[in-house]
Simulated scan of single mutants.
Amino acid sequence: MPYGFGLALSSAVLVVAGLVSPSPSAPMTCPPVLPVSGAASAVTPTSVTISYSIFLSPPCGYDPPITIALFASQADAQQWTDPVGEALSGPERSGQLTIGGLTPDTQYWFRFAAGDHRDPYVFASVRTAPVPVCSATIQIGSAWGGGFVATVSVRNVGTEALEAWHVSWQWPGDERIQALWNATAQGAAAVGNASYNGELAPGASTTFGMLVATSMPPGAMALSCDRP
């Protein structure tokens, strides 16, 4: 009987020893993804808008707020020196930030930081838009069930004379140009100037017209104008 009691006691000690001496835990492994990502989502001549998403929290990633720093050269961005602009996010883990006061038609580089932690992964460039040289606006005149007539005004909004212009847009439906005047067709939704109205001094304007077939006339439309 004493011999059997000794075995039971010995087992109890082993179980208790196992409880108070757990095995060491395995080190944490971060998933094989970037902790943050970003890309330019919009540009104007004087600003850039960067979209960002924070995927991982510490210790593998970051918590908001996050800072986007913009640099004038690739070397400055690599060394993180002399940022030309910064924008700080709110508590959201994804969103958009805009940095303004920039030079038109200029390339910049952006990077991310969270507090004192500078992200070493995201390193990308973005270019501001050039100053527009012309604008185009459309006015739909008479319209009926099978089509409409539209007049487009083209204006030189730059500081230099235009020798030629190009206007393009996107049709919202099944529109098709049937006839065109004071312009030359350059695609299903693009035209260029005629031989006699391409030159526009600063502030000067001209017009062209088109007859369009469609099952339903469109509402407001945005047109782009630039040099060809």
Rank of each mutant, 00 (worst) to 15 (best):
P130W: 01
I140R: 14
S135L: 07
V133F: 05
V157M: 03
G147P: 04
G146W: 10
G147M: 02
A161T: 12
V152R: 10
A136C: 07
P132V: 08
R155D: 13
G145F: 13
T159I: 12
G145M: 06
A161S: 12
A150S: 01
V152Y: 05
R155S: 14
T137F: 03
E163V: 09
S142P: 06
P132H: 01
E160L: 10
V131E: 10
A150L: 02
F148D: 12
G146Y: 10
V152S: 04
W144V: 00
C134K: 11
A129F: 14
G146V: 08
S153T: 15
T159C: 14
T151M: 03
V131G: 05
S142Y: 08
P132Y: 05
S142T: 12
W144Y: 00
R155A: 15
T137H: 09
P130R: 05
Q139I: 05
A161F: 15
T151F: 01
V149L: 07
A136L: 03
F148G: 14
T137P: 08
G141T: 11
N156E: 02
A136P: 01
Q139D: 03
S135F: 10
F148K: 12
A136S: 01
L162G: 04
G147E: 01
S142A: 11
G141H: 06
V157H: 10
E160Q: 08
Q139T: 08
T159G: 12
A150E: 00
I138A: 09
G147T: 04
E163A: 05
G158S: 10
L162I: 02
I140T: 13
I138P: 08
I138C: 12
V131P: 02
G158W: 07
L162K: 02
I140N: 15
F148H: 11
L162Q: 00
V152F: 07
I140K: 11
V131K: 10
F148I: 15
S142M: 08
E160R: 14
T137K: 09
A143H: 05
V133T: 14
R155P: 06
G158V: 05
S153Y: 09
G145P: 11
V157A: 00
S142L: 11
V152D: 03
S153N: 08
W144E: 00
E160A: 14
E163M: 14
W144D: 02
G158A: 07
C134R: 05
G146E: 06
C134G: 09
A129I: 12
A129N: 15
G145D: 13
V133N: 04
N156W: 04
S142R: 10
S142E: 09
E160S: 15
S135C: 14
G146F: 07
A143E: 14
T151E: 04
V154K: 03
A143Q: 13
G158K: 04
A143G: 13
V149I: 08
I138L: 11
S153H: 15
I138R: 07
G145T: 05
N156A: 06
C134L: 08
S135A: 11
P130Q: 08
G141I: 12
R155E: 14
G146I: 14
V149H: 02
T159P: 11
A161N: 15
A143M: 03
S153R: 07
V149Q: 02
A129Q: 13
T137R: 09
P132S: 01
S153L: 12
G146S: 09
